[in-house]
């Protein structure tokens, strides 16, 4: 399980990483919000531990951004201990709030609680290195992430679930629109085109192939 630690003080960051590694996590450290966001988008962790006092882009804006994608819990670890600080952090979307200094046992206990809570809640499908969150339709690949519109997201989730088999047009219609009646036949083709375009935007290593009289299939690409 990946834990990302975003803390600008090198010594503290080191120790936090060590604490999580000793507890068996795959811990990654970042010194500022920008570098963290890029990595978090590519490979979302099971938990992000964030210090609000970051250089450049503030920790609060980082929390707010992560909360927007709703992919993983955020634990705020900060020296700021007033009620106001806590309410601000929680209000922006943080899931828990701890003040420094904090015993390792407490930090790990809270981390465990959050990761367990969230793993039960996450609704995600993977295909090779690509993942699709079925609640937010946020598509993540090693080269980036994009939020798909609902229809395209649902089509892709059908295709990804059916892999390595193709999904017939009937199946797709049933899953996405509920019925083929009263629905324009073209709508599937149009959405597939749009979906392909969106996949191309972030160079997703997934190809949607139309197999005649069988339907569509989502194939993971091995070369870029």
């Amino acid at each position: 399980m990946i834990v990302s630690v975003i803390e600008d003080d090198a010594f503290l960051r080191d120790e936090l990483l060590r604490t999580f590694i000793k507890a068996g996590y795959d811990a990654r450290g970042f010194a500022d919000a920008e570098s963290a966001l890029t990595a978090l988008a590519v490979e979302p962790p099971a938990l992000a531990v964030v210090d609000v006092g970051l250089p450049g882009r503030s920790g609060y804006s980082l929390i707010s951004e992560i909360h927007g994608t709703k992919q993983f819990p955020v634990l705020v670890l900060t020296a700021r201990d007033t009620l106001n600080d806590e309410l601000t952090a929680l209000g922006l979307g943080a899931d828990d709030f701890l003040t420094k200094p904090c015993p390792a046992a407490r930090l790990l206990a809270r981390a465990k609680r959050l990761t367990e809570l969230y793993s039960g809640m996450r609704n995600e499908i993977k295909l090779g290195k690509t993942r699709l969150d079925c609640d937010s339709f946020n598509l993540t690949s090693p080269s980036g992430s994009v939020v798909l519109p609902e229809t395209e997201g649902r089509i892709l989730s059908v295709l990804m679930k059916k892999y390595p088999f193709p999904a017939s047009a009937d199946e797709i219609f049933a899953e996405v629109w509920g019925t083929r009646d009263f629905v324009d036949e073209n709508i599937l083709r149009v959405n597939i085109t749009r979906l392909r375009k969106n996949l191309a935007v972030i160079d997703t290593p997934v190809e949607i192939v139309n197999i005649r009289s069988e339907g569509y299939i989502a194939k993971p690409c091995t070369e870029q």
Partner: peptide, 16 residues
């Protein structure tokens, strides 16, 4: 607030 960061690092260090 400033001093709490090195203190937190020190305390985790003694644990780790």
């Amino acid at each position: 607030h400033e001093v709490k960061t090195p203190l937190a690092a020190a305390s985790l260090l003694t644990d780790n």
